[in-house]
């Protein structure tokens, strides 16, 4: 079972590395933010798997904190960045200028 977990951890990290292309290419701020949220979720999964592979249960706390704080980042994005983007551009298309 531990072997399977180790391979899964590797795959999840590979997932993050491939997903970095979305951060690089965008095209919009929302794509980049969602990619970052996906990485948070992957990192939580990696930490949970590592907690059982290494039998270190303190890693569960790290995963807990990471999962909780991922919400803060996305809420800040929606309120402070995304709404600022939407507000002045009501006559144009609703796309954003932040690239």
């Amino acid at each position: 079972m531990t072997e399977l977990f180790t391979v899964l951890v590797g795959l999840l990290l590979l997932n993050i590395v491939v997903g970095l292309a979305r951060v690089l290419r965008g095209p919009s701020a929302i794509d980049r933010m969602l990619a970052s949220e996906m990485f948070s979720t992957s990192a939580v999964a990696i930490l949970l798997l590592m907690a059982f592979i290494l039998d270190k249960h303190e890693l569960l706390d790290v995963a807990l904190v990471l999962a909780l704080l991922a919400a803060l980042t996305v809420v800040t994005f929606v309120i402070r960045v995304w709404s600022e983007l939407e507000a002045p551009k009501s006559d144009n298309d609703p796309g954003d200028t932040l690239k």
């Binding site: 904190v65 991922a70 803060l72 980042t73 402070r80």
Partner: peptide, 10 residues
């Protein structure tokens, strides 16, 4: 990952 992200985005 948490507080700094919120600070920078704000």
């Amino acid at each position: 990952a948490g507080a700094t992200g919120a600070l920078l985005l704000s």
